[in-house]
Design a protein around this nucleic acid. Structure first.
Lengths: 193, 193
DNA sequence: CGTCTATTTGAATGTACTCAAAAGCGGTGG
DNA sequence: CCACCGCTTTTGAGTACATTCAAATAGACG
């Protein structure tokens, strides 16, 4: 159950056995079945989730009703509504399982206590969000600077595993284009090869 | 010199006088004059900067040579190349003063030592980057979902001060559009009123 | 006052979108 | 096991938002 997350933690820090035990004690194993939601817009978010197995998507819905995928989360990723958790305000995002998934949840309050007891975890979560920030910034720049076909090719390179697991229209949404247009891009690329 | 940053810190935590003194001791006052760079692409970034007075922009240059503004930084903001600092790799961004500016620099290594001595600072910087992440995510969603004129109006609301201080084509770049198009948007809006 | 940069305006173009419909694919039940 | 249903992907035609290139105008600074 904890092998994967222990490896994740080990990348940042080395824990004493008792801290390790304490950490495990606040993690709540949780399963979500395909197509069901971990969080919906308007709900109060209380947990962050580490993905042990499976695949989820975090997305929001804009004014004219179309979905924008903010993140795919597969094994060894964290997913959560950072904005909502921080401000304790209703979520503006949905988190939905795209496959039957096994998670480890950590409650906001338990996390705070964990930070006090083991400051190394504050560091770990700082590094985690720092990485998320860098990924998001790269994606943002690419969305402004690169045409959709390049962004698609880049996605294929960076997340070949996700391409296999996720319906194509979700990838279109992640790239910021319509499913129709992604289909055309693929047709063009196929012709070139 | 330190009044503003002390207020910033006080929002997160309360420091003992000796910790406060230590914190001040690692801050390096620094001035940049208008149009000069604090950091350029390819350089190794070693410091983060707190803006005491002035205005800067962080931007990168994409493949076809056009600038993308990632952030404006005015009084009470932090600015730095988070990606480069974390990975100790050459910067892919530029940080340039748009006005003569007064900064307080903190060196990467001093920051690490500060975190060890006063864990509350690790928390402060975690919260800082968390806020940056939320801002960036909102901006990302808006760029995908909202047309340029709405994004401009939203920018006017959110950063009325910056609009006054910064040339218009930089705002266009921040919004992800060309200066010509922003000019047309403004012409349209002026007509409506 | 002249020069340099920023902004505006015009015309042509392109990337990506919308709406509509057809084709493909996968799961489920008879 | 195959037929059907729903969902995903593809294809087509027309359109819109935003870009590019070019030139004119306006502003700022020495």
């Amino acid at each position: 159950m904890f092998e994967a997350i222990d490896r994740y933690v080990a990348h940042c820090t080395t824990l004493s056995p008792s801290d390790m035990e304490y950490f495990h004690s606040i993690l709540q194993p949780f399963t979500v079945s395909k197509k069901s939601w971990l969080l919906r817009e308007g709900e109060l978010s209380t947990h962050e989730a580490y993905v042990v197995k499976g695949c989820l998507r975090k997305y929001c819905i804009d004014e004219d009703g179309s979905e924008i995928i903010l993140q795919f989360a597969v094994e060894d990723w964290w997913v959560g509504d950072i904005a909502g958790l921080a401000s304790q305000s209703p979520s503006r995002v949905y988190i939905q399982a795209l496959e039957d998934s096994e998670l480890l949840l950590i409650h906001r309050d338990d996390k705070e206590r964990l930070f006090e007891r083991v400051p190394a975890f504050e560091r770990m979560f700082r590094l985690m969000i720092q990485r998320s920030y860098v990924v998001l910034q790269d994606r943002f720049v690419a969305t402004l600077a690169a045409p959709a076909d390049e962004r698609y090719l880049h996605f294929l390179e960076k997340y070949p595993d996700i391409v296999q697991r996720v319906p194509q229209h979700y990838i279109a949404s992640y790239l910021g284009i319509t499913p129709e247009f992604l289909s055309r891009i693929r047709a063009r690329l196929a012709k070139k090869v």
